[in-house]
């Protein structure tokens, strides 16, 4: 169950992750800004908070398909997908940026459009850079899955029920907790960005 969740999260997450990755590489602000915000928010909040939020928002009743309770499986998968797609999009972005600029120039000089260049020249080479890191991400997701499996899906819903009894604003509580973590992690990831840029500069000359 854990493996199935992790596998689906990595495979589907990789496909989904292409969208924010390409959006972040775009020079257009309309594409760039929302994708950056999405990645920063997901990376900057703990998985646990995201899972709790998704359970709260996707209130699916218990029903079984192939012995698996979809009421817990679907929200679990959605939460993992959202989480892994943000991380994987950063891996993909790094992989794409690691492809030599000369490759793009050569393809464009041959009259290929930018999307053709991306599909036929850049992505096939980027995959080689992406793969090892993707394996890493897979391991991480397995670990994360076990954490929230340990929490217990039924128990979780039970807990939320108790919380609900005490406070009418459960969703808001989760969001506030998430925001507080973001406050701590966002400056850190900005610092990482800065270091990354300095490294690129050192590489260039």
């Amino acid at each position: 169950m854990t493996l199935l969740l992790a596998f689906l999260a990595v495979v589907l997450g990789s496909i989904l992750a292409l969208i924010p990755a390409l959006m972040r590489l775009s020079s257009k602000k309309i594409l760039n800004v929302p994708a950056t915000a999405y990645v920063e928010i997901i990376r900057g909040t703990p998985m646990l908070v995201q899972v709790l939020l998704i359970y709260q928002l996707l209130n699916i009743p218990l029903f079984l398909i192939g012995g698996i309770d979809m009421g817990s499986f679907v929200p679990g998968l959605v939460a993992l997908l959202i989480n892994s797609s943000a991380y994987i999009s950063e891996i993909i972005r790094g992989g794409i940026q690691a492809v030599d600029r000369g490759q793009t120039e050569a393809a464009r000089s041959l009259g290929m459009s930018s999307s053709m260049t991306m599909r036929k020249i850049v992505l096939p080479q980027a995959i080689k850079n992406i793969f090892p890191a993707l394996g890493n991400e897979f391991v991480t997701i397995i670990k994360e899955t076990s954490i929230f499996m340990y929490l217990g899906i039924a128990e979780l819903m039970y807990q939320v029920g108790i919380l609900k009894a005490n406070s009418p604003a459960v969703t808001e509580l989760y969001i506030i907790a998430g925001l507080m973590y973001l406050l701590l992690t966002y400056p850190l990831s900005k610092l990482m960005n800065f270091v990354e840029r300095r490294m690129h500069y050192a590489d260039a000359k």
Binding site: E105, S109, L110, M112, I121
Partner: peptide, 17 residues
Amino acid sequence: NQLREKMGMVFQSFNLF
């Protein structure tokens, strides 16, 4: 893109795929 088709370019670093 169409105009570039008509202008071949050869680079210092080859840039073969």
